[in-house]
Design a protein around this nucleic acid. Structure first.
Lengths: 134, 134
DNA sequence: TATGCACCCTGTAGCAACTACAGGGTCAAG
DNA sequence: CTTGACCCTGTAGTTGCTACAGGGTGCATA
């Protein structure tokens, strides 16, 4: 492939993304369709790399595809106030906090269950018992 | 419906499960198909209620459908050692611990991002900047 | 020159674990 | 005898990918 552009495989390796995922992002409009070579191969430039990196980082932080789409849209509106960005990020933070609390509660329950195991037969298993009360 | 049996709607209300979910559990073999009334309505008894409660509790603790299936299978083998049960529960606990650690790390990153927001325009937004570095 | 191999293309189906219809049947009350 | 709440089956949608199948491209090597 030409020196100044990346094949989809190159882009995949560079951003630690599967080739299929990149095509999926293109289908769903997260990434713009790149130009094609004469052989119909996708030829990516630096702006595609930047955009995909953005998407990956946001996804790694757990933003949903729709949130990423919103963030990308905002990123292009340089003159706007960054309040909307802040709002999306805070929403995500609240979500993370909820999940952390849920998981922590769940962990306590699970650990208590396991702590009750007396290593006998299933007939006297406290874990099974705890799952199936009357 | 007869006094001694529950309609799918009754069962759904009692266990806080959607009707469709109950049918889904039946399709996938988590719940045994109940007898039917003359009008072809499902008629559940106490054992179905117990089994669905078990499933719901296990699912609420985050066990996968396959893990629940395994637990149900074990619950019926009263003479076996409860080691296998313990193993499944410990696996789940390890999973929860991994997720807690991941989420906590993610929370730190997110909070640091948000903390950097200076409430200006998007052009100078630290959040956008942090997502799209060179 | 042939041919092998890695890579690319499109399109579709599958994963978990539900959820939401569409298009019908059943049943008790008014 | 009709209304409305409930039930039935079957299928498609959700999220975010992932995995083929069945082909084309492009470069190096025998």
């Amino acid at each position: 492939m030409a020196t100044d552009s990346l094949s989809i495989g190159d882009l995949a390796r560079t951003t630690d993304t599967k080739v299929e995922t990149i095509r999926y992002y293109e289908r769903t409009g997260l990434l713009p369709p790149p130009p094609r070579t004469s052989g119909n191969y996708r030829a990516y430039g630096g702006e595609h790399l930047a955009r995909l990196s953005f998407v990956r980082r946001a996804r790694d932080l757990g933003f949903s595809i729709e949130q990423v789409r919103a963030l990308l849209g905002l990123a292009d509106q340089q003159h706007l106030s960054c309040e909307a960005v802040d709002t999306i990020a805070r929403e995500r933070l609240a979500e993370v906090d909820r999940k952390l609390a849920d998981l922590a509660a769940l962990r306590r329950e699970l650990a208590s269950l396991i702590g009750q195991c007396r290593h006998g037969t299933i007939a006297e298993c406290r874990i099974i018992e705890a799952l199936a009360p009357g």
